[in-house]
Amino acid sequence: MAVCVAIIGKDNSPKYFCCLNPDEELGFQYKVLSSLDVVEEKLNTTNKGTNDLRELYLGMLYSLETHKIYGYVTNTKIKFIIVVDSTNMALRDNEIRSMFRKLHSEYADIVCNPFYIPGDAICSKSFDVNVKNIMTGTV
């Protein structure tokens, strides 16, 4: 069960940000911003030719005291970040991956919307609802 989801565009500015708890949004924004550094680092070091590079899923980026941050980068350099509560031990790697996959297909759908110009912030109610469903795991 994710607490926060962010979609960051090619230029590293946020396209979409959603928190289940709106009060913590500012704090989460900071955390996600910091995690971008790690994402970039991971992308850069893939030149070394390890196997991880073939995957879009980056794995855990950060482990904070109370939260864990996972990252996923598409081929089009769009980054998805999911923040998960640490106390929730039930979530395993596979589930995180599946969350990312669903997120990716949601994103692909919204990109195909001709009224959405890639590069803008995403404001679509149905997208909000879908993402919230993914976050709470009710999909």
């Binding site: 893939t46 081929n75 089009t76 990109v111 001709p114 890639p118």
Partner: peptide, 17 residues
């Protein structure tokens, strides 16, 4: 415009280039 959008869908399952 079409190519830009469709690539998102098509590369969803592909590993990174």
């Amino acid at each position: 415009s079409t190519g830009y959008r469709i690539i998102e869908r098509l590369t969803k399952e592909m590993p990174r280039f």
